[in-house]
């Protein structure tokens, strides 16, 4: 009898822990929605989204999200263009080529990369990367979207490498054997059999990489130059959605329209990352052939 009660108690406790995460997400969403409705009820949703001016403290204030959204898009796009080829190549090397000792070293190294606080990466970006970009491209300042992209590529790499590596390793060995036994070379086997078989996992890795990058705040705040203007190239300073919230939340007057507009930004960000994660999930759990 006591044993049975105990079992029930444990079951309930585990259930509560499991459901807590879901409840928390729902609560965050509701909170964001509530606060941002206070903003979107006073401005037109679509003109806000596509207005190119972000002057929240001028008179009258202008709350255009477009430069911020494009800032995030530019930085993320640059980071993914850099991180995906390197990440996939690294994963192929780790899972297919590297001898087991080097494999261990590399995997540990990449995990360490994931453990570096983003503010440290931002710091390195300011003192090492930005001057280099300034020098190479002859710019007035190195604090640009490109600097953000490169630093964020480092942050996305561990996610991409480990998920792609998982996907490659879980390709059945029999495919590889079949291909080699037909006289295909190792590289032909990787390109024509292993990569196609791991494709859903690779797409998911890219999606999660994007999710990781687009939500990153500290490093981009430090090294992208923080100018809320419409960017035309990666060599311009930009300001991302996340950096805007981080930079302005501290000085905004609570309850003002500006205050609520930041929640509006948060809401847009939430929706974007939600869909990216959803897509990644769909690819990861899509039935493998």
């Amino acid at each position: 009898m006591r044993r049975k009660l105990f079992e029930r108690f444990v079951e309930r406790a585990i259930f509560l822990s499991g459901i807590a995460a879901v409840i928390l997400v729902v609560l965050i969403f509701v909170f964001l929605l509530k606060e941002s409705i206070a903003f979107f009820s006073q401005v037109n949703f679509f003109t806000t989204l596509f207005n190119k001016d972000w002057y929240p403290i001028s008179e009258p204030p202008k709350f255009g999200f477009l430069p911020l959204i494009l800032g995030s898009v530019f930085v993320t796009f640059g980071a993914i263009v850099i991180a995906v080829p390197f990440g996939v190549a690294a994963a192929i090397y780790i899972s297919e080529v590297a001898p087991s000792r080097i494999k261990d070293i590399l995997k540990t190294g990449i995990e360490l990369l994931a453990a570096i606080p983003s503010i440290v990466l931002g710091f390195i970006g300011i003192v090492a990367l930005a001057p280099l970009i300034k020098y190479v491209f002859r710019l007035p300042s190195g604090l640009t979207a490109l600097a953000g992209s490169i630093m964020l590529a480092f942050m996305a790499m561990p996610t991409i490498v480990s998920i792609v590596e998982d996907a490659l390793t879980s390709v059945p060995k029999s495919y590889k054997e079949g291909s080699l036994a037909l006289g295909a070379t190792h590289w032909q086997t990787i390109r024509r059999v292993i990569l196609p078989a791991a494709f859903p996992g690779i797409v998911a890795a890219v999606m999660l990489g994007i999710g990781r990058v687009i939500g990153e705040t500290m490093a981009v705040l430090m090294i992208t130059g923080n100018a809320a203007i419409l960017p035309h190239s990666l060599l311009q300073p930009v300001r991302t959605l996340t950096a805007t919230i981080a930079a302005e939340m501290g000085e905004v007057i609570q309850g003002s329209l500006h205050y609520y507009s930041l929640f509006g930004i948060g809401f847009v960000l939430f929706v974007i990352t939600f869909f990216i994660n959803l897509m990644a999930d769909m690819f990861l759990h899509r039935k493998r052939f």
Binding site: Y175, G178, A181, L182, G183, A184, A197, F289
Partner: peptide, 30 residues
């Protein structure tokens, strides 16, 4: 060259997760 000349069929059928056509075309292609 050796494996082209000496082919192998495995215990468990191991077609590639590709179409029937692509499976057969694989060898001639590589």
């Amino acid at each position: 060259t050796l494996r082209k000349k000496v082919g192998m069929v495995f215990q468990r059928p191991n077609p590639f997760p590709l179409s029937v056509f692509e499976n057969i075309a694989f060898g001639p292609r590589v």
